[in-house]
Amino acid sequence: MITIDGVTRVRGRTRVLHEVSFTARPGRVTGFLGPNGAGKTTTLRVLLGLDRPQGGTALIDGRRYADHDRPLTVAGALLDGSGAHRSRSARSHLRWVAASNGLPRSRVGEVLDLVGLGAEAGKRAGRFSLGMSRRLGLATALLGDPPVLILDEPVNGLDPAGIRWMRTFLRDSAAAGRTVLLSSHLMGELAETVDDVVIIDHGRVVAAGELAEVVGGHATLEDAFLAKTGSEGVSW
């Protein structure tokens, strides 16, 4: 369970998050949607303790991420890139991450197989394609077999087969009882995957609820999104 309550963040003179509040529940995929620059990544970084909020709280199972012992067993996160130093092999990257949380070494092989990188375990992260980097990042998030997954733009850089794989993986994770929170600016990809939707625009939550509720009278999630964010009529 993820509880974000009144999170405000100021960067320089700009207020990038205005009292952002929402929850993501177990057994459901929550889509955190918004245009680029709306504050999605910042919210997720605050949730993980990477950025400091000026107000509000962001909790995972009632505690701040950093207050959990062995946090990788509580929540797994996929942010930008692979998160691995480019000179390290996928295996050696995952081994130090596993060691840091006292996870068994056998998990390294398991997660590499799970994301389809079993054959690339000895390859240096710097030589990975974008799609492979995302898979390595996901493998890192899954090391501790956490009940909560936090994923920033998980389908970015994936080929169609990768996108389908990710979608199935996310649905299966929620079916297994995990809390899945993912951010995206791609509405089409999300409509088929998410149960709940939170829409953020200019640092404010403009809509939140079950998918059907948020879509409401609009034809598609995309239409609802454009109406809520006031971006209708803008040429892309």
Partner: peptide, 10 residues
């Protein structure tokens, strides 16, 4: 993207 993110998550 930097390794630091992984380090601080762990």
């Amino acid at each position: 993207a930097r390794q630091l993110t992984t380090t601080l998550a762990a």
